[in-house]
Design a binder for these strands. Structure first.
Lengths: 229, 229
DNA sequence: CAAATAGTGTCTTTCAGACAATATTGT
DNA sequence: ACAATATTGTCTGAAAGACACTATTTG
């Protein structure tokens, strides 16, 4: 139908906010830009979406190409789209951002279009450190995460397949940035039926009474919610 | 930088889910498509975004052009983006969907690219009735609305500038599709400080004790939430 | 045994929800 | 007075949060 004649094209990119929990706190996966503009500046992994792939497929592909990380079968959800007219000086682009959660310390391997893929503690980043409007996207992603673990099992995606309630609580504490009462947390997550499946083994590392281990259950929501307060 | 040579362009459209509350229930603003494909089929108002306008500006413009409706200063927020490879048979398009809320029965005036702009009760629509993937977008928009009025003042956007608590409750009931206890609702919304500002006038239409009238307050969230249950 | 961590009990306060009671208007 | 609607009161059960307590392991 010749859209080009009426409307100069708007390019579509995907960017991914990949988060994990490290001892130092909540961390995000960033790459150093390997091309102008903003060569060498930290940025979210991402790139142009292809004509024959869906948005989420493009997000997975760019993440794999730039960081060597495979996000399936863990959490990957759409975050929002960013389309300010001047957000990219090269051309008019609209970026569809995704939010991903990784359970373990996956070691990134820098790819072709980017160098220096590495984890960065979110609280240590300043707004000016990221390329384009990626600081805004990161902030939106972290806020989405903080809100969503209140009423969904999303926080379990930060844990391995088998985990203790302490490990799950550590994820909550890293994400919200404050301490939670161990006893109340324990009761709370166990009171939500279908959230956790107890397994036979126990965790006998370190001193103290060994903790029970659990797997993710089938519950789709955390009800009643667990408020940040 | 010649992106075209590497990546055939992906077109960006905006579509708007405009909702209001009518006596028959929650209603959405739909247009009849004025061009092939799917000529005459019901669709969400929307169209291609221009190079010199932001996404939200595009949403406002398309809404005005196709229905004559101005959505400001009421609620307009981004919903999600839809980019399945085959969602539009003409070309690869990504649609950024917006959710808008109107307080009054605004009469649409069909525009150039569309005919028969009109309100349709959401529950009366079947999945097959809408063009492209617009049924999915509509369902996502309604679900977002149903979830969000639980913990934000969004439902007040369905009321005029001045309204009674009954009018606000009627909006909740239409959106959730079930009855709410008048007394408990009354106490609940008044207990949230900053949600409602009482004004001097009263509502003396019809029989019964006249209700107090209120304006929207400055509260950004409804806390504690008002659950659908 | 002490130290450390896991898990449970208890109490207070808040609040949702059901439903009754009172208040204020028009007819 | 009566009907209709607004607003407030009361009671019960659930649950959040603070914090004390018990349980089970290692060293």
């Amino acid at each position: 139908m010749g859209y080009e004649s009426k409307f100069p094209p708007v390019y579509v990119t995907v960017d991914v906010v990949v988060l994990t929990v490290r001892p130092e706190g909540l961390a995000v996966l960033l790459v150093e830009r390997g091309a102008e503009p903003q060569l060498g500046i930290l940025a979210l992994p991402g790139g142009f979406v292809r004509q024959d792939e869906s948005l989420v497929d493009g997000a997975r592909r760019e993440l794999l190409e730039e960081t060597g990380i495979v996000v399936e079968p863990t959490h990957l959800e759409q975050l929002a789209s960013y389309g300010a007219v001047d957000r990219d000086p090269r051309a008019r682009t609209v970026s569809v951002a995704y939010l991903a959660v990784l359970p373990r310390w996956a070691e990134p391997t820098p790819g072709t279009d980017a160098a220096g893929a590495a984890w960065h503690v979110v609280d240590d980043l300043t707004d000016l450190e990221l390329a384009f409007d990626h600081s805004v996207i990161l902030r939106d992603g972290v806020e989405r995460l903080r809100a969503k673990i209140e009423y969904t099992p999303l926080a379990t995606a930060f844990c391995e397949d088998e985990f203790t309630i302490r490990e799950l609580r550590t994820a909550f504490e890293a994400i919200w940035g404050h301490h939670l009462d161990a006893g109340n947390f324990h009761r709370k997550v166990l009171s939500c039926r279908g959230l956790l499946h107890e397994i036979a083994e126990r965790d006998s590392t370190g001193p103290g009474r060994p903790a029970r281990r659990y797997r993710r259950g089938s519950a789709a929501e955390l009800r009643p919610p667990l408020y940040r307060s």
